[in-house]
Simulated assay, not measured.
Amino acid sequence: MPKTPPLPKVIVLSTAGVSRSSIAHVPFLLKILYGWLIAQPLRDKLGMERLIYHCAGWEWNTEVDGEPGEEIMGSKEWRDTEGLPAPGTLKDAIVLRAAGLTDGDCLADKRKEGEKIPYRAGEGHVIGWTVSRKDVAHFIEDAVLNRWSEYGNKQIGIAY
């Protein structure tokens, strides 16, 4: 009997402050920026997160975070969209909420033997202003190859 290949791991890159419950964990000045300047991209990311939560079968706090609008999801009945995976069918996913992304160096690669990784990553919210794209890539590689049991199937925050 042929062996069924494993399903892929899915990692989506979102941002801190994308939902109502996460905006409380963003530095004050960023709250102003997020609420005004980048409000539309945040709605898109909220829609992306909502789809992952649905397909993974994770609990979404509709009372606090609401639902993305029809302009993002297509209709109020988006869960009935033909071809949309059933809740719980996505078995390996991470929603990664990064602080403000920079083009800086990968500080994790520059650390000396035994030094702590310079970014903070953990389940839920991690408060911070920035993190470099290269350190986010470092985290993703480490999470997928070495620490899936710790980070897989969770919403993770990352920041300096």
Rank of each mutant, 00 (worst) to 15 (best):
E123G: 08
A39G: 14
I158H: 07
G114I: 12
L30I: 12
L90Y: 06
A39V: 11
Y160P: 15
G157T: 05
G128N: 07
R97G: 09
P118H: 02
G124Y: 01
S14K: 03
D44I: 06
G114V: 10
A108F: 05
I158S: 06
A137H: 04
D103E: 14
K116E: 15
K154F: 00
G66E: 08
G122E: 12
V18A: 12
A137L: 02
T89D: 15
D135F: 00
K134Y: 08
S149W: 08
R79P: 00
H54A: 08
R133V: 06
P8F: 02
G74D: 02
I72Q: 01
V131I: 02
G114H: 09
G74M: 04
A98Y: 14
G100H: 13
Q155I: 14
A24R: 11
K45G: 09
A86P: 08
G122I: 11
H125K: 08
H138A: 10
A137D: 06
M48E: 12
K91R: 09
Q40E: 12
L96C: 10
R147E: 06
G74H: 01
S14T: 11
W58M: 11
G122Y: 11
D135N: 03
G57P: 04
L51E: 08
P118S: 07
D103W: 09
G17V: 09
L37T: 13
E115Q: 11
D65T: 00
W129M: 14
W60Y: 01
D109I: 11
R147V: 03
T102C: 07
I158T: 10
K3P: 07
T81H: 04
G157Y: 02
E150T: 00
W78M: 03
T15Y: 04
L37A: 13
K9M: 04
W36E: 13
F28A: 14
E63Y: 04
E123S: 03
Y53T: 03
N153R: 04
Y119F: 09
L96S: 13
G83N: 15
M73A: 09
D92H: 02
D135A: 01
A16K: 12
A86I: 07
P41F: 02
W148N: 03
I117G: 14
E63F: 07
F139N: 03
K31P: 12
L145H: 10
T15V: 05
K31D: 14
E77N: 15
K9A: 06
G69N: 00
E82I: 01
D65H: 00
D65K: 00
N61Y: 05
R20V: 12
Y34K: 09
L107N: 15
L84S: 10
L29S: 08
L7H: 12
P41A: 03
L107D: 13
M73G: 11
R20Y: 11
H138V: 08
D44P: 05
V10E: 03
G100I: 12
S14C: 13
R111H: 09
K134T: 12
R50V: 05
G57S: 03
G128D: 06
W78L: 00
T15R: 06
G83Q: 15
K116Q: 14
E123L: 04
A99K: 05
H125E: 13
H25G: 15
G100Y: 15
R120D: 15
G104K: 00
H54K: 10
